[in-house]
Amino acid sequence: MTPENQAKMVADFIQNMPHAKALSMLVERSGAGEAVISMPYDTRLIGDPETGVIHGGAVSALMDTCCGTAVMCHPNAGVPTATLDLRIDYMRSATPGDRITATASCYHVTRNVAFVRAVATDADTDRPVATATGAFTVPQQKAVTS
């Protein structure tokens, strides 16, 4: 499979996950161990009723999906993958009404583990809303062969 086909297949797979659909996630870009996924603001996701700021849990779901996607489209990792550990740092509240975009990249991949970093922003792209670091499983037999 070509890298382009692999990226397309991964994007389709991600967007068809029931929970990704429930949050209306959109794969903006994926390939070569990187992914960009966005999610619209939704009042059902509010975590702080006073301000209308969305719950950290929804941001976690976006981060986890984005990191997993980056692993799945890495030439030395592939499908399937599972999260071993994910840490999210919440830098500030996302602005209510803004779309949230996560960008993830695999910064190191071994035969067994992929190490991933991600950052999430709202409309103000200079000030991150949250960052994430995670470790993901790499399939035993390399799924991606060209």
Partner: peptide, 16 residues
């Protein structure tokens, strides 16, 4: 559901 093939709960749901 995250991965419909397994099927398994989405990691984001677990985190939330």
């Amino acid at each position: 559901i995250g991965n419909p093939m397994l099927p398994a709960i989405h990691g984001g749901v677990t985190a939330a």
